[in-house]
Design a protein around this nucleic acid. Structure first.
Lengths: 215, 215, 215, 215
DNA sequence: AATGAATGAGTGTTCATTCAT
DNA sequence: CATGAATGAACACTCATTCAT
């Protein structure tokens, strides 16, 4: 195959080593993602991934030390997607902004499908569990600091614990995409956003924000 | 159990057959629970469970047709514990009632530790996944009908979708026990209850309930 | 149970020990025969035999040292049935006599069904194979000596090797019952007897025997 | 095979892939044959076959889906050898022709030793049993049609049932090789052929055939 | 003598990983 | 670098046999 590319002067005689290698790596990653999402981690064998990526079994182990490492490489890129995105509250219509945030998040998850393996992995991979936990703490902290901002401006309920509030928001945002699967009708992100905003803004604040936005 | 029989004259020279058999079964169940919770389902072999219960491998298969069946026997007793308990809103202090509900639920879960395997199993065992889903739909329906009662009495927010509201409560209650593990300080159930109650009751309703209770 | 039999004077207070024991032994033998014939030797477990005989697993091992021994006990009684019965040639109608011999043999085999396990066992049990071989040698010798009698009287072909002849007869008689199963119509023992008699008697001798019988 | 490629300039630096793989497959087949013949089918484990072929257990399963399949592969090549070869009667010396047929058949069987497992398998493998039965029916039909030819020419006994006759020949030919094992001296194929020919040809026909051949 | 629960070695089979080519 | 055949430890599960009761 590569011989056919040789006869052109001035062209790359072949795809550079590294690039070709990276193509295989990429193919393996993609195949891993597809198969993990479809069949689960344990149920997918290294051989299958290699076959799906159209490389030999041994090649798998040139690019990844083992099956776990391939999964980690996949998760590395996605881990932040699994967690709740951070809502931004300053807007004339926070409910609407939040709703689209929720939808985007759900779509991202559904697309990769990889979140399906997470529960399977977390129970056996302490290291990954720690990474995830750290990420969640980060997310929680970010949501919390956002809440503190609006707290200082007197825009939020004064009788709720901000830490718990942040955690509740994180949980709801994180799980929003599951509603459909877990029981019931397709989720209405607009309504979920409304519920979350109720936890953050007293009704009169929400009203005021809208008016300010229009003005 | 057998201790109660000791005070009678003419003791049993040995533990009766059936009881001994049930002891082994129980030992296997306990070992299964401990090992599943500690290492995950797939990571635990039938041999290990048997060894931990101090019986031979074959004995495992006398009491359970396979590993899955042992797990199912364990879950059968616990499946309802995994899901959110149903909150009751009619009380002079719904926040307090809810807080103790949350705490009880969390303690139950932590004690068995079995909820840790659920995610792993649900991804592979379609049958169990369906059972769980059905249970969640039931819980959701119950929470929803509770909300409808107070909605009819005008005690709840009028601008929130009750279906989403019920779902949000379910998610928060279900995950409450996870807060500690997932990130941060030990959860304060009182504060979580407050957050949930905010979703249900406008502040003035809550105030009124308290006064009515005192009066 | 046996206590209830005590109150009658002059009766056996209970079935004698040995007899009861022999009943269990017999039941086990029967169950073994039925199950071995139906499912094969390896496919039948000691537990199954005990269950079928309505005794406990352990009881099996009181009466037989192991599964093999039960089989041997069964075969001991039947081994001669498996082999060709010895034909008797002196009769005014040897074909007819032989035909009923064949039929009796076939019926005996079909009834016990145990001959089905023989091939399975012979391949793994050298000892039994030797016993069988010895029995065949005995049968062969007996058939041979029968042939020698009529040879001396000039009643048989003079150009056939009597040893081979005896062997051929043994094989045909032994396998007669299989014809039906192996391919084809139900065997006609009369015709098979005719074929075998052709190997023994020249046609004119056969004719003469018939006439002498009538005379 | 590869030796033939050596005399060419530029030898293969190593045995080609495919050939090596086939060598392992062949080694496994051979080991299977040897062990099955020596110890029987059930008594031989896949692990043993692999060990005997000096490959790892897993390698066994690369070439054969299971033990049964290996056996089937072995039998596929041999199944026709197990059955009686078809005698041809038109010859100036049918006894001699038949004798060498018998001997060739016996040698083929003794060489592979595989026929020893047949009885064991047939009792458990319905599919194979059917294949064998079909083969026997075929053989029987062929022998029968051969007999019909000579019957039409008036060369055979007129008072024997051709169907039974064909069956008897098949049985004798099929079992000829067993005589040695089952009891007695090494079989004299010449004499067995004589016996079988007696069933087919009246003595005077046999005589005539010889004279015609000489003329 | 009888029971049947308990034993544990042994089976077929899979799959992550290695390594000769 | 790539290949894919080879490896062998590990697993779920069975069953002949033993043994406490």
């Amino acid at each position: 195959m590569s011989e056919k590319e040789d006869y052109l002067v001035g062209e790359f005689p072949f795809i550079p080593r590294q690039e070709r290698a990276q193509q295989k790596r990429k193919a393996l990653l993609e195949s891993g993602q597809i198969l993990f999402a479809a069949k689960g981690y344990e149920q997918t064998t290294a051989k299958e991934i290699a076959a799906h990526a159209k490389v030999a079994t041994g090649t798998f182990y040139r690019y990844f030390s083992d099956k776990r490492q391939l999964l980690m490489a996949l998760l590395e890129d996605e881990i932040d997607n699994f967690l709740a995105p951070e809502p931004h509250w300053f807007s004339s219509n926070p409910e609407f902004v939040l709703a689209s945030l929720l939808e985007t998040h759900a779509n991202r998850l559904q697309k990769s499908g990889l979140y399906r393996v997470l529960p399977e992995i977390l129970s056996k991979d302490l290291e990954l569990a720690e990474v995830m936990q750290a990420a969640r703490i980060r997310i929680h902290a970010r949501i919390l600091s956002g809440l503190q901002l609006i707290y200082e401006k007197g825009l939020t309920w004064r009788d709720l614990d901000l830490d718990i509030l942040a955690w509740s928001i994180m949980i709801l945002v994180e799980n929003g995409h599951e509603k459909e699967r877990q029981g019931g009708n397709r989720i209405n992100y607009q309504e979920l956003a409304k519920v979350i905003c109720r936890l953050v803004f007293p009704p009169e604040v929400l009203e005021k924000l809208r008016n300010d936005g229009e003005a």
